[in-house]
Amino acid sequence: MAAGDEAAFRRFFDHYAPSIFTLVERLTRSRPDTEEILQDTFMKIWSMREKLADIGQPGHYCYVIARNMAMDRLRKFAREKTLQNSIREMFPQSHDHSAEAAMISRDYQLRLNEALQQLPPKQQEVYRMSRENGLSHEEISEQTGLSKSRINNILVAVLKHIKSRLGLPSGLTILGAMAHFFHR
Rank of each mutant, 00 (worst) to 15 (best):
P121Q: 06
K81T: 15
A101D: 04
S47N: 05
F42G: 06
R111M: 14
L135V: 10
I37A: 11
Q39I: 09
D40Q: 15
R106E: 13
L38W: 01
H97G: 13
S86M: 13
I87C: 01
E50R: 09
R75M: 04
R26A: 15
A115M: 02
A101W: 02
S47I: 04
R106C: 03
N133G: 01
Q118K: 12
R106I: 05
E35M: 13
Y108N: 07
F91C: 02
D54C: 13
R75K: 08
S86K: 08
N113P: 07
K76I: 04
P121E: 15
T22G: 13
A78N: 05
D33C: 06
P32F: 15
E125D: 05
N133S: 12
D33V: 08
L119W: 03
L110Q: 08
T82R: 13
P120S: 09
T82V: 06
F21A: 00
S105R: 15
A53H: 06
P120T: 06
K122A: 12
S98E: 10
D96H: 01
M90Y: 00
I104H: 06
P32N: 03
H95N: 07
A99K: 00
Q109E: 14
Q118A: 10
G59N: 13
L112A: 01
V64M: 11
T41F: 03
A78T: 10
R73S: 14
